[in-house]
Amino acid sequence: MPARPLRGGWNIWRLAVAVASQTRAETGEGPAAFFRAQHAAFGLTLDAHKGAADFLDRIWMQAFSSYEHNVAEQTKDLPPLACRKGCGTCCRIQVVATAPEVLMVARYVRAMAGGFRKVGIDLPARLAATADATAETAGTMFLGRECPFLAEGICVIYPVRPLACRGHVSFNEEACVSALEDEADEVPVSESHRTVRALVQGALQSALRDAGHAWSLYDLVGALKIALARVDAEAAFRAGEDVLHPAIIDHVSREEMARTFDKLKA
């Protein structure tokens, strides 16, 4: 069924809540059971690698590996996706991400900046020149600007792109273009991709919260500017500081999210 894909992370979070509430309690199966299993697995990793130098790498890799494996299982019978290399139509949507995702993108930008400059792509300058989403435009495709990491239709941070980007896929490129031009409200997106993304991301947030780490969702552009300005951003995150706090997306209160995570874990 067509769905409105033009919204940001807060509605993805609500999707996770709605879907997880549909669990089949009598069998212990369903989305809520999946959420609990993911939460427990993240918790074990966070506990086992607390304070370790590879802490961020471990939790980031687990999140993306879990998403890729489970979405592959859930989408075996879906029709072919319209998404292809060179199509950056959806790269006007505000992207929200967890702290581990933001910090890994920041690390990648630092590591690759020199190489990209040699081919005329200045990643830090592109990011600095990109305006943060406003309250009026946040969550829509019509942001008035494209992602700073889109170059000639190619995502230059593709290996470390956030879950939000991985979970937003379409079956109809023409519908995406129409939505970008503000001529359509609905695009036939893959609900399976969106749901797996929402549940994995929500479970990661919940586990980070229980472990005493920053667990909010952040505007990717704003959070990256902060992370790149602080050379100690990763160390501060490992120590429990919410270094990205100014870029928090607060359309759903932390109190509401916390209550829901506790309910899903129960």
Score class of each variant (00 low, 15 high):
33 A>E: 09
45 T>M: 10
13 W>D: 15
8 G>Y: 08
50 K>R: 15
27 T>N: 11
12 I>C: 06
19 V>E: 13
27 T>K: 04
23 T>F: 09
9 G>W: 10
26 E>P: 01
32 A>I: 01
43 G>R: 01
19 V>F: 08
56 L>F: 08
17 V>M: 07
47 D>G: 06
8 G>S: 15
16 A>H: 11
56 L>R: 02
41 A>R: 00
11 N>I: 09
28 G>A: 09
53 A>N: 10
52 A>I: 00
13 W>R: 14
26 E>Y: 06
22 Q>C: 06
38 Q>F: 08
57 D>Q: 04
49 H>L: 14
39 H>I: 04
30 G>R: 02
48 A>M: 11
32 A>L: 08
54 D>A: 13
22 Q>S: 14
53 A>P: 03
43 G>E: 00
37 A>M: 09
56 L>G: 04
34 F>G: 05
25 A>L: 14
10 W>G: 09
26 E>T: 08
13 W>C: 11
56 L>V: 02
14 R>P: 06
27 T>Y: 07
52 A>Y: 07
13 W>A: 14
39 H>D: 08
17 V>F: 11
46 L>W: 02
32 A>G: 07
49 H>E: 08
37 A>H: 05
14 R>V: 05
58 R>L: 09
25 A>D: 10
24 R>Q: 12
9 G>L: 10
39 H>G: 00
28 G>M: 03
53 A>R: 08
40 A>C: 02
25 A>P: 09
39 H>P: 03
57 D>S: 03
57 D>M: 05
40 A>F: 03
58 R>E: 09
21 S>F: 02
39 H>T: 00
58 R>N: 09
15 L>V: 05
54 D>T: 07
46 L>V: 02
42 F>N: 00
18 A>S: 14
45 T>A: 14
55 F>A: 07
52 A>F: 11
55 F>K: 03
19 V>T: 13
40 A>G: 03
9 G>H: 07
50 K>T: 10
23 T>Y: 10
8 G>A: 15
41 A>L: 00
19 V>Y: 06
39 H>R: 10
20 A>I: 02
11 N>F: 11
39 H>F: 15
7 R>Y: 15
26 E>R: 13
7 R>Q: 12
42 F>T: 01
15 L>H: 06
32 A>T: 05
58 R>K: 15
14 R>G: 05
7 R>M: 12
10 W>Q: 12
23 T>I: 03
7 R>V: 11
8 G>R: 11
10 W>A: 14
12 I>W: 10
23 T>C: 06
40 A>Y: 00
52 A>S: 15
32 A>S: 12
29 E>L: 14
47 D>M: 03
56 L>W: 05
18 A>T: 10
57 D>T: 12
40 A>Q: 07
33 A>C: 05
30 G>A: 06
46 L>N: 04
47 D>Q: 13
26 E>K: 11
58 R>S: 09
53 A>G: 04
12 I>H: 12
55 F>C: 09
27 T>I: 05
36 R>M: 01
34 F>Y: 12
53 A>Y: 03
44 L>N: 06
15 L>M: 13
10 W>Y: 07
19 V>I: 11
35 F>E: 05
35 F>R: 01
28 G>C: 02
52 A>V: 07
35 F>N: 00
27 T>A: 06
53 A>I: 00
58 R>P: 04
19 V>W: 06
39 H>Q: 10
45 T>I: 07
